[in-house]
Computed example of a mutant assay.
Amino acid sequence: MNTQIGLEPVKGLIVLGMAVGIVACGRSPVEGSDPPTPEVPQAIVSPSPSPSAAPSPVVQDQKTLQRALDKAYGAASIAQSAASPGDWQLVTRQWQQVIALLQHISPQSPHYALAQQKINEYQKNLTYAQNQSQNASPAPAPTPQIIAVKPVTPVQPVRRRPYSAQPGSIQTPIKRREGGTPVIDVVFNQTQSFEMIVDTGATGVVITQKMAQSLNIPLIGSAKMDTASAKGVTVPIGLVESIAVKSLVVQNLPVVIAGSQLDIGLLGHDFFGDYDLIIRQDQIVFQPR
């Protein structure tokens, strides 16, 4: 799927692999000239009613639809790197929750037709995830059959040499795994550290709304993107002063600010594109090409 994004004034390319594709283009500010006024993205949900009044059914259905679309975005992101049965079981639960949310939208709602359309689409995603969960299960070991007993010359075990990182390589520990995918600590703007999923299938960097608020990220534009959950979804684009893993630092990097359902950021090729990744049991090695 392809998504075109207008980005001003920072040049960047942001694509969420397999589930989300974002094509970004723009011009960097010319030295000595004033940068253009950033375009502030418009909210994609209607304003909330006043505290004194209960939300109308239409507003409530719209919020439910938005929650479902955000959660579908998260399910598609997890599916990018799913490999084990546990990974696909997590994806299956995510799609089940998305469909359950859409089924709560009233038939009288103006969003009902779209909700039914998405239920049909997501049911296919759910079926696929369920099949992958079964297919990814390890096959039982075959029962050994002894055809003949013959003397066997002992074979000396192969001794593996300990791994030695190349000069210039950067090693960082894996804190834990999210759905089988490594999670590491990443420092933003030289001040705050956040856990991030190292997503080799994502082209760009995606941060959560809480991260954007904590870092006070300035908005520089917006993007319309097509995802597995919806078409033409508007998301804000922010500018991060620096992102660092140990001594690997990238400055002035545009990032996607995800919906409220995403609770952990994704670290993509915009950050480590000049390095080869070696994912070991307890650490990730960024090796220069």
Rank of each mutant, 00 (worst) to 15 (best):
N189K: 03
V186I: 15
N135W: 15
A148M: 03
Q171R: 08
T191W: 13
S137A: 14
G168R: 00
Q145C: 06
N135L: 15
Q190L: 12
I146W: 06
N135H: 15
T127Q: 11
A141W: 10
A136S: 08
R161Y: 04
D185L: 05
P182I: 11
Y128C: 08
V155R: 04
F188G: 12
P167I: 07
S169Q: 01
A165L: 05
S133F: 11
V186H: 11
T172K: 02
V186L: 15
V152G: 04
T127D: 03
A136V: 07
V186N: 11
P157S: 08
Q156V: 14
Q192V: 13
P157V: 08
V183H: 13
K150E: 07
V187H: 14
E178F: 08
Q190S: 13
Q156N: 13
N189L: 01
T172M: 03
P162N: 10
G168A: 00
Q145P: 05
N135T: 14
T191I: 12
I146M: 07
I184M: 10
Q134F: 14
V152A: 06
P144C: 03
Q166T: 08
G180I: 03
A141N: 08
P173V: 12
A141E: 10
G180V: 10
I146K: 06
Q130D: 02
P182C: 01
F188Q: 14
D185F: 01
Q171Y: 01
E178N: 10
Y163Q: 06
P173D: 05
A148Q: 06
Q145I: 12
N189D: 04
S137I: 14
S193H: 07
S193Y: 09
P151V: 02
K175A: 02
R161S: 07
A129L: 10
S164I: 10
V158C: 07
R159P: 04
V186W: 13
T191C: 12
A129D: 01
P154V: 05
A148H: 08
P142R: 10
P142S: 11
Q166N: 08
G180D: 04
Q166C: 06
P144A: 05
S137V: 14
R159M: 07
G180R: 06
I147P: 05
Q134K: 15
Y163C: 06
A136H: 04
T191L: 13
Q132W: 10
S137G: 12
K150G: 03
Q190M: 11
P182D: 03
Q134C: 10
Q190T: 11
Q171G: 04
I147E: 08
N131K: 15
V158T: 13
Q134M: 14
Q134Y: 14
R177T: 02
T153H: 10
R177V: 04
P173F: 05
A165W: 03
S193A: 14
K150R: 09
